[in-house]
Nucleic acid binder design. Structure first.
Length: 1020
RNA sequence: GCUGAAGUGGUGGAAUUGGUAGACACGUUGGACUUAAAAUCCAAUGGCCUGUAAGGCCGUGCGGGUUCAAGUCCCGCCUUCAGUACCA
């Protein structure tokens, strides 16, 4: 009987499904192991061969762990809410619920054909109300929590209220909005209910705030920072503009330090950790407060004097400033605002504070309007307006252009009391730090360039450093000069001293700043989780947990709007009756018992931030998961997925896990112990070359050589006798075509479908002609009777016709071949090109394996004692495969299987004692054929229940070694010697060998290096 | 610019702690079987030199170094890919 993979695979897939073979138990005496894949977005395009790569790897590991005696949880589900599903729905004009369902069905069909050992009884879908009930529930927990810096954890908001009642907020050290003001217990009791709610909102871990968001008009929604790539939306590549909107935000910044520290405790790839650390962007420095001078103090004549002069003249300077402060100028000059303003800046270099020669505010900075003088007003306003108009992308695109405007205002240097001019410039970002910088041109290149450009002073405060050409930013080699009490100090010491002095003055303090911003959590879209929120008097109220889920309402049109009104605004039944506790018609809104519901929906990352925990107990209606389930499974042991989620999903999921940990809901604060990023599988595009512009004629690759924009004939003829005399320019397409010539003919490369190409890169011309009308009458110039295509490795995409689907491969070669080949391509974590041609190798390996268990057409294994060689091959294989799986080196274990089967075939081995354990080794990789042969061997139970074979060293012990004999490090010949020999005996044997004498040509060797069991090197 | 990863035959890739570079495959060439094709099997296959063989020389991005011995370790470059980007 031949290897009928179609029949075998269909039968076993059915068997596994019907018998629940891979169902995990929540209660087992076995040790647990949780292997997770990043669940897919069910997009409309279906899977291509790149998608299952990680799933195959995790499946191999899961199956291996079962053989090793673990109770393995290996679930799968769908991330079915969010932009991808909705965009597809919009493109096809259907309701997202319908397209999502269809896409899931298609995905499932494709996945099932590959033979994964998923426990489908635990499937989750983020768009399913039974699932998003718990997404809403977590949102409520976040709303009801605040972050206590003292305890460094999230606490219940009720605790905070209790503190406010007893002592106000003066002693509270919380992560909260910038604009909270101090109040006492008495104040608190006098606040209205609404005021109290407003204050509490500033502390909650999810809060409403008017924030400047990334608005994408084409997508009709706001986007998180990680959803924007190069200034345009990650999905669709649409422009993104900044816009002020009231939005829900997640106070992820509260967890910045813990998210950073946690990286040290998890086994994740270093590049991924680096990019998270980078994203969090911790920097140590200081906040410095500069008082804005209320009038126009005279800048020092002739630019700025030296520090010595200032120090000598300090009294004068101070008194002039004092005068300036006393004599309040007319209100007009202050823009009608007579308040004393303070600019706060964040700096990582407080040691360079004496090098400050100007300040720069972001154009959006709130003080800009207030401090700008009348003379500068027009110019400043024009600049602010111009900046606001520029999209994020434009601003990023021209980093090199220096622009800025002087506000006319001055601030007072905290130490020298010198006036410092205040500028605005778009190189200062409103979103980072305080949106203002103290510019130290001698120590920062951007400040330097700005100062040069506008002719501002560049005082040098570094000892022995030339700053005539560029700024000096090397902290390590810094010695401060011209800086009063900081003179002669190193960066480190000066920093500390400067901060101390600033604190003395009450004009600054040490501060750690993070780049990580709070995450916007509202989306103006239809296809997402509704918020469990309604509004009373404009203040958000949570719907009680017992009434969850709040299900998505039906709407007439689910398309987003360009202006930002959420589609849920179109729902007729979308109001909350707070007495009946149910969703009712909008017509009933009376603002006393029936209230409007939140119209935004949650972003795509909501559901994916905790789904891994829900798999542990996915059908629980009472709780998010039972305590027993979470305490048994605890965390994911192995998580496999793409690195593109580094600063999105993987950061948000860690954040929620830490929050749930603070709440005592999960037992560990990192959800995944080990993570592996699988590399991308690239397509190998096929390219044909059209001659000239409109001629429907194509040349084979051998005639093509690229140089600049021209393509012309290759100068590498196969038989060199005929063409030898011609040089490149003389050979050209038209010569070959036998037609009138020019020297060069340009060729147009055209992508064609990769399925028309055979394993030798030969084009099936008939298929191409039938593909599209324009090729119907095309002419092809062949080489050796074939048309050979050019090949190019690029991302798989429909437009390049290089997409390969797994279903097709399963149909032609079988799932086991697909699985083996995907692993055989190369290291899991590496990007690698797909070329279907190579699959022949693993497919014929499976046929050879099949033959090993058959004599002709009949299944036949013997109970004969295995030979020494048989055992050696088996145990060598056990050892290698086990090591490889533990190291996730799946490509090398496929080679090992091939070697084993080649050897056993050569040994004509058909001993059950060898062939049985061999099947278990292979079964994680090629489970269908393994099950089939296992059954033929007489087993009743699935091979997945079999124990992994145990390696026995004794079968590998050798008595002799084929020693490589080197002369001056170059291997010349090998010599088989007993391993019992000691160094001297080996040396004697080598020296006695005739070839050694040949090599030495009679000379005596200077030295002989003998490493027993390894090598001999004769140094001559 | 910064951070990270990687450069090995025609191709994908092996090579444990520094110890026989190119395992295992694909492709190619030749052969067997076949009316033919497919499938299968056998042989050769890094480059160069010597007619073949025996043998020799050169070879892991480039240039140095350490060592009896370097793809592997050290120093200095180059290139490619990925992430990030005015972060004060």
């Amino acid at each position: 009987m031949s290897y009928d993979f179609r029949d075998i695979e269909a039968r076993w897939q059915k068997y596994w499904a019907e018998n629940g073979t891979f169902r995990a138990e929540n209660d087992s005496a076995k040790p647990k192991y949780y292997v997770l894949d990043m669940f897919p977005y069910p997009s409309g395009a279906g899977l291509h061969v790149g998608h299952p790569l990680g799933y195959i790897a995790s499946d191999i590991y899961a199956r291996y762990k079962r053989h090793k005696g673990f109770n393995v949880l290996h679930p799968q589900g769908y991330d079915s809410f969010g932009l991808p599903a909705e965009q597809y729905a919009i493109q096809t004009g259907q309701h997202p619920a319908i397209t999502t369902k269809e896409n899931i069905a298609r995905y499932r069909e494709q996945l099932d054909k590959i033979g994964f050992s998923f426990d489908w009884s635990r499937e989750v879908r983020t768009s399913d109300p039974t699932f998003y009930k718990w997404t809403q529930w977590i949102f409520i927990q976040l709303f009801n929590s605040w972050y206590d810096n003292h305890e460094d954890k999230a606490r219940k908001i009720a605790d905070l209220e209790a503190i406010f009642v007893s002592e106000g907020n003066t002693k509270v050290n919380a992560v909260c909005d910038e604009d909270v003001t101090e109040f006492t217990a008495a104040d608190w009791s006098n606040f209205s209910s609404k005021e109290k709610q407003e204050i509490l909102l500033k502390y909650r871990l999810t809060y409403l705030a008017e924030t400047e968001v990334n608005w994408c008009p084409q997508l009709g929604t706001v986007l998180a920072n990680d959803e924007i790539v190069n200034g345009v939306s990650e999905r669709g590549g649409y422009p993104v503009v900044r816009k002020k909107m009231t939005q829900w935000s997640m106070r992820i910044s509260a967890y910045a330090q813990r998210l950073l520290d946690g990286l040290d405790t998890i086994d994740w790839p270093q590049p991924l950790k680096d990019s998270q650390a980078n994203w969090i962007g911790r920097s140590e420095g200081a906040i410095v407060k500069f008082r804005v001078l209320p009038s126009h103090p005279q800048p020092s004549p002739e630019g700025r004097g030296s520090n010595d002069e200032i120090l000598n003249d300090i009294d004068n300077v101070i008194s002039s400033i004092e005068n300036a402060l006393k004599v309040l100028p007319s209100g007009e000059d202050l823009g009608g605002d007579e308040k004393q303003h303070t600019i706060e800046v964040f700096t990582t270099r407080p040691d360079t504070i004496f090098g400050v020669s100007f300040m720069t505010l972001a154009p959006e900075h709130e003080l800009v309007q207030k401090i700008t003088t009348a003379q500068q007003k027009a110019e400043v306003e024009a600049y602010v307006e111009a900046t606001a108009k520029r999209s994020e992308r434009e601003r990023m695109a021209d980093v090199k252009t220096i622009s800025g405007v002087f506000t006319g205002a001055y601030a007072e240097h905290p130490f020298t009391k010198e006036p410092v001019p205040i500028w605005i410039g778009d190189y200062v970002l409103a979103g980072y730090g305080t949106g203002a910088v103290m510019a130290v041109p001698c120590g920062d290149q951007r400040d330097y360039d700005f100062a040069k450009h506008y002719g501002i002073d560049i005082p040098n405060i570094f000892e022995g450093v030339d700053i005539s050409e560029e700024a000096f930013a090397d902290k390590e080699n810094t010695i401060i000069a011209n800086s009063d009490f900081l003179n002669g100090l190193s960066y480190k010491k000066a920093t500390k001293r400067a901060i101390d002095e600033l604190e003395q003055l009450g004009q600054g303090k040490g501060k750690i700043n993070y780049r990580l911003r709070d995450a916007v959590f509202s989306r103006q879209r239809y296809w997402g989780e509704p918020f469990p929120v309604y509004y009373v008097d404009g203040m958000p109220q949570m719907i009680e947990e017992q009434y969850l889920p709040i299900e998505l309402p039906e709407v007439e049109k689910y398309l987003p709007t360009e202006t930002g009104e959420p589609p849920l605004g179109r729902a007729d039944i979308w109001a909350w009756d707070s007495t009946k506790n149910k969703v009712v018609s909008n017509d009933l809104i009376d603002h006393t018992t029936v209230f409007p519901l939140e119209l935004n929906t949650m972003p795509g990352w909501a559901g994916s931030s905790y789904y891994f925990n829900r798999y542990m107990d996915p059908h629980n209606d009472e709780e998010i998961f039972s305590a027993a389930a979470i305490n048994y499974w605890k965390e994911v042991d192995l998580y496999i997925g793409g690195s593109e989620h580094a600063t999105g999903h993987l950061l948000y999921a860690r954040f929620w896990q830490k929050f749930l940990f603070d709440c005592g809901i999960v037992p560990v604060d990192e959800f995944a112990k080990k993570l592996i990023n699988q590399g991308m599988i690239l397509g190998t595009s096929a390219i044909i070359y059209r001659i000239g512009g409109n001629i429907n004629k194509y040349v084979s690759k051998g005639y093509v050589k690229k140089e600049g924009d021209f393509f012309y004939a290759s100068d590498t003829p196969k038989d060199d006798s005929s063409n030898k005399s011609l040089d490149e320019d003389e050979i050209n397409i038209d010569n070959i075509a036998g037609e009138p010539t020019e020297n060069h003919t340009s060729l147009t490369p055209i992508h064609v479908d990769v399925s028309f190409i055979n394993s030798s890169d030969e084009l099936d011309i008939e298929k191409l002609k039938n593909w599209r009308p324009e090729f119907k009458n095309a002419e092809f110039i062949l080489e050796d009777g074939k048309y050979i295509v050019g090949r190019e490795v690029e991302k798989m995409s429909k437009s390049k016709y290089n997409v390969v689907n797994p279903d097709g491969i399963c149909e032609d070669y079988g799932a086991d071949s697909l699985r083996l080949y995907e692993m055989f391509l190369g290291p899991l974590e590496q990007a690698k090109p797909w070329n279907t041609a190579g699959i022949n190798g693993v497919h014929s390996f499976l046929k050879k394996l099949w033959k090993l268990y058959h004599n002709g057409d009949t299944f036949e294994v013997s109970d004969a004692e295995p030979t020494k060689d048989n055992l050696k091959t088996l145990h060598k294989t056990i050892k290698k495969v086990e090591e490889d799986i533990e190291n996730f080196s799946f490509n090398t274990s496929v080679s090992t299987f091939m070697i084993a089967v080649n050897e056993l075939t050569a040994q004509q081995c058909n001993a059950r004692a060898i062939l049985e354990p061999l099947l278990v080794l292979i079964s994680p990789y090629a489970p269908h054929i393994a099950e089939e042969l296992w059954q033929k061997l007489g087993h009743q139970e699935s091979i997945s229940t079999a124990a992994f074979p145990v390696f026995e060293e004794k079968h590998l012990i050798e008595s002799t070694k084929e020693y490589p004999i080197s002369f001056n490090g170059k291997m010349r010949f090998t010599l088989e010697l007993s391993l019992d020999l000691n160094k001297d005996e080996i040396e004697a044997a080598v020296m006695a060998h005739e070839k050694t004498q040949q090599q030495l040509e009679g000379r005596a060797p200077k030295k002989v290096i003998v490493v027993p069991g390894k090598i001999v090197n004769v140094v001559g």
